Simulated scan of single mutants.
Amino acid sequence: MFSLPAAPLRVASIPFAAPCGEIEQNVARVVAWIERAARERIGLAVFPEACLTGSVDGRRLGRAQMKALATSVDGGSVQAVADAVERTGVAAGVGLIERAPDGGLYSSYVVCLPDGERRVHRKLQTDGQPHIASGDRFTVFDLQRGWRIAVLAGGDNYLVENARIAALLGAGLLVSPHARADATDEANAWMRRTLPARALDNGLFVVYSDDGEGAIVDPSGHVVAQRATGDEMISAELDPALVGASPAQRWLETRRPELYARLAHGSRTGSPSVEPRNAGCRGAIAVSFAIVRRDR
């Protein structure tokens, strides 16, 4: 399922606050951080969700306002980041409101690679954002030296199934950018509590970056680096041996997919597919039921 990377990878979470609509300023700050990351020998820099356009509350802005903030993933903002990546050799993930060729709007996260490639993840879970379309696929790709990367943006990280799919697709590192909606948003606390569990359950590293905080978690669920105070970069060297030593890797190999059909097709209503606790073996017979509804 998973082959270990050939060498350690030094990563950084850069959780700066990006003002909404100040795109040129935000791009300039991202480029400056990439250049600093190069001086500190960072291989991958992870910026927050929507760091180029700034944090956007899609529940309050109208479509016209959202469209005014949106840009193509091939536009000037992303190109400036890609140029910095190629110049420094530091791969970088940045978020924006994407305007697709068909006019659709997406909350997207673009990972620019030193070889000129761009990997685009469209956010899967966009509940509460009526003008933002949902992505329809997972984003998993190879970075360097055997490191396989998955991206889950914002609310994508709230569902345990998404991280599990990333692991089953061979990811050893989960990039988890986030954007706080407002000062009272509890999503940040949720992320702090759940990301160590995601790492532990799936045997992968997690790099979390928000506009106010960030963290790096190892495959055993230990937070190895996190933001304390000030405008700082959080960095750590990821040891691939920790992925191989994670108990989750063994348990992933012993999964029984034939038992999990309800995860894909079931709902929270209806009869659960479990054995009744009060069933006894004496005199028991196998019985099946079918419920048929006649259309009236």
Rank of each mutant, 00 (worst) to 15 (best):
A38P: 04
S246P: 04
P272K: 12
R180I: 15
I14W: 07
G104W: 01
E117A: 05
L105S: 08
T229H: 09
I23Q: 06
G95H: 04
E35I: 02
E24L: 12
S246Q: 09
A228I: 10
A133Q: 15
R145T: 14
V31C: 05
H178P: 00
V151H: 13
D74M: 05
V175L: 15
F289M: 13
N26Y: 02
A6D: 12
R59K: 13
M233A: 12
R59Y: 07
G62E: 09
V243D: 06
C51T: 08
I14H: 03
V175C: 12
L174F: 09
A171E: 08
H131P: 01
G212V: 05
L105G: 00
A38K: 07
T254D: 14
A91Y: 00
G76N: 06
G230R: 03
I149F: 14
L263A: 09
N202T: 07
W251M: 14
L259F: 13
V224E: 04
D102G: 05
L200H: 06
G221I: 06
G75Q: 04
G95S: 08
A163R: 08
A100H: 14
I23L: 09
N162D: 12
I149E: 04
S246T: 05
G62C: 02
I234M: 11
R29C: 04
A181F: 10
T269K: 08
V27P: 03
F138T: 09
N162V: 04
N162H: 15
S13P: 03
N157Q: 13
Q125D: 09
E232M: 09
D115N: 10
A241L: 14
T229W: 05
Y158D: 15
N202M: 01
S273G: 13
G283A: 11
Q79V: 11
D218P: 01
V292N: 04
R256M: 13
G62H: 07
G170S: 12
R255T: 11
L169P: 10
S108K: 07
C51N: 09
D185E: 06
R293S: 03
G76C: 01
F138V: 05
Q249Y: 07
Q65W: 04
I14P: 00
F205P: 06
L61G: 00
Q25M: 08
Y260I: 00
T194W: 10
R41Y: 05
S220D: 01
V206W: 06
G116R: 06
E117T: 07
R137N: 09
L174R: 13
S288C: 06
P15D: 01
E275R: 14
H131L: 03
P130L: 08
Q129K: 10
G95T: 11
T139L: 08
A189W: 13
T254V: 08
P177E: 01
V207R: 00
S209N: 05
A37Q: 01
